[in-house]
Amino acid sequence: MPRAATPKPSPRKKTVPDLQASGATPRTLAIDIGGSGIKAIILGPDGKPLTERQRVETPKPATPKAVMKAILGLIAPLGAFDRVAVGFPGVVVDGVTHTAANLHKDWKGFDMGRELGKALSRPVRVLNDAGVQGFGVIEGHGVEMLLTLGTGMGCALFVDGKYVPNLELAHHPFRHGKTYEEYVGNAALERVGKKKWNKHVQRVVEQLLPIWNPRVLYLGGGNARLIDFPLPKQVKVTENVAGLLGGFALWKDEPPPERL
């Protein structure tokens, strides 16, 4: 179970919204950290959005300090919330980030759950971003798999609704000496163009289906909207907002396990 940080109240900064929640509770602040953008939204007690999605560019360099500052500015207009769910692009164990290939080396060993909890005086749970997005789309039975196509490539695996944490398939060698991420990430899209990139994605799908045999393979992330090849019947394209909506699952009565 992900650790919930329970920090003591600390002096509020001007960028932090009033945390005295009002109306229906609990209200979940969902944050999705990506290599190119950081997004946030408030979810109600039923997991549905209560606010419009907010977005800012991911700072460069994307150090923990810079990203934390960007988050505080991003959430200021959203209003009150009771708890926080964060999707992070890398390996996360007990709220501590261990890898962040598309952000910065300083994320290794950073206790994001604790530090963000201290800044907001609210409990925080952090999970790999593909895992969070998967929780926003899965049906909860059989083997389900999700790939996110954005700055890099994320991957999440679920068995009967239970999350298999931190599956970093993106960095496994795939084709012509390139990893999956190097083959279908945003840099590849910009290098080879949309038409050839679609062929790359199609090859990845064709490679994964007979190995993992998922009941459903979901394709999400910001670049999934560019897919224009015929999809096998068990493959579905999802909306990118699932990366925020899935944050609600981190605060269910039995949250997903996060330990390796």
Rank of each mutant, 00 (worst) to 15 (best):
M1C: 03
R3T: 14
A4S: 15
K8E: 06
K8M: 11
P9D: 01
K14D: 14
T15S: 15
V16T: 11
P17Q: 05
L19T: 12
Q20M: 12
A24T: 11
A24K: 13
T25I: 03
S36K: 02
A40Q: 15
P49W: 03
L50C: 08
T58S: 00
P59D: 05
K60W: 14
K60I: 05
P61V: 00
A62H: 09
A66F: 02
A66H: 11
K69E: 14
K69Y: 08
L72G: 00
L74R: 02
L74C: 07
A76T: 11
P77E: 08
A80N: 13
F81S: 13
D82E: 10
R83Q: 09
A85L: 00
G87W: 07
F88C: 14
D94R: 12
T97K: 03
A100V: 05
D111H: 07
D111W: 01
G113K: 09
R114W: 12
R114P: 05
A119Y: 04
S121M: 00
V126C: 00
N128Q: 00
N128Y: 00
Q133K: 02
G134I: 09
I138T: 09
I138P: 11
E139W: 01
G142I: 09
V143E: 02
E144L: 06
E144T: 12
L149R: 10
M153E: 02
G154Y: 01
A156V: 03
F158D: 15
F158M: 03
F158V: 10
K162D: 09
Y163I: 08
N166L: 06
L167R: 15
L167T: 13
E168N: 04
L169Y: 08
F174I: 02
K178P: 07
E181H: 04
E182R: 08
Y183A: 10
A187C: 00
L189C: 03
V192C: 06
G193K: 11
K194Q: 12
K196P: 05
Q202I: 04
Q202T: 13
L208M: 14
L209A: 08
L209R: 14
W212H: 05
V216S: 04
Y218R: 07
Y218K: 07
Y218L: 10
L219C: 05
G221K: 04
G222L: 06
I227L: 07
D228Y: 09
P230R: 03
V237C: 12
V237Q: 13
E239P: 12
N240K: 12
V241Q: 15
L244W: 00
G247L: 06
F248H: 15
F248D: 01
A249W: 07
K252A: 10
D253F: 01
R259P: 08
R259G: 09
L260M: 15
